[in-house]
């Protein structure tokens, strides 16, 4: 049974695209057939993070408008053969997305892949709405700071009211991924505590990804961090998050400063 997963946040710059690439790669490295779909039409980035920018010929909009077949637009990753990318168009804007077009593409992708991961644009406008509309599950990416948390709260409200599942009276399964967590700053009280974020958003915790230079480095070389440096703490957090998405019940690792980010059991289980 294939799953449609949206990676969303409301706020920009919190790590949606990085997380999409890392989770998509981690799931694919685990043997699943994965496609990552860039919904950020006009501000396409996912192709860069995946190092596929020089191979883009057709894109999501071409497929929606019938100018290209889905198979022509899909780009298979050179390193992980289970991982494909459906890039966004850089020359168009979000108005080129249509309800029926997106529905058709998602349905077609569901036939071919185990996981369809939609990288949502920031904001709450059409692009973000269409990215989440068909989702079975959502990963809400949040930084431990107030504006990001409030925007995530808003997005969670929309996941509960503006998706195909909610219209049928069902629920989108929501997971919280805290990214750019800096244990040193958290210890000094310069960041929201994980507990505070969880209390405000009250959705199950999928993982805590520490702030790491490796994430930036990986982006610069065009590789998901889980592929570029699998032993890194951030990569491990993504690998664990991917296993939880697949239904495994693992305790969440709390990044620690003193132990050089060495994982320590946090003692909290995802619900």
């Amino acid at each position: 049974m294939s799953k449609v997963l949206v990676v969303t946040s409301g706020k920009g710059g919190v790590g949606k695209t990085t997380s999409t690439a890392a989770l998509g790669a981690a799931l694919a490295q685990g043997g699943k057939k994965v496609v990552v779909v860039d919904f950020d039409v006009g501000l396409r980035n996912l192709d860069l993070i995946l190092g596929a920018e020089r191979r883009v010929v057709f894109d999501l909009i071409n497929v929606i408008q019938g100018d290209a077949k889905l198979s022509q637009a899909l780009i298979r990753d050179k390193r992980i053969e289970n991982l494909s990318l459906l890039p966004a168009s850089q020359t168009r804007d979000k108005d080129a997305l249509t309800d029926e077009g997106v529905a058709k593409v998602i349905a077609e992708l569901k036939e071919k892949f185990d996981w369809v991961i939609c990288d949502s644009p920031a904001g709450i406008e059409k692009g973000a709405m269409l990215a989440m509309y068909h989702a079975d599950m959502a990963v809400v990416v949040t930084n431990p700071e107030v504006s990001s948390v409030r925007d995530s709260d808003r997005i969670i409200g929309m996941l509960d009211s503006k998706t195909a599942k909610s219209e049928k009276g069902e629920r989108v399964e929501k997971h919280l991924l805290i990214t750019r967590y800096d244990p040193a700053r958290a210890a000094r009280g310069e960041m929201l505590k994980v507990d505070d974020v969880l209390e405000i958003l009250s959705i199950p915790l999928l993982g805590i990804v520490p702030e790491s230079e490796e994430v930036l480095k990986a982006s610069n070389v065009g590789a998901p961090v889980t592929l570029n440096n699998p032993a890194n703490a951030a990569s491990r957090a993504y690998f664990e998050a991917a296993r939880r998405l697949s239904g495994e019940d693992l305790p969440v690792t709390m990044p620690m400063e003193k132990q050089g980010f060495i994982a320590k059991l946090f003692g909290r289980r995802v619900a």
Partner: peptide, 8 residues
């Protein structure tokens, strides 16, 4: 019977 989220 559920949280009222930001913006609602």
């Amino acid at each position: 019977n559920e949280p009222v989220r930001s913006g609602q």
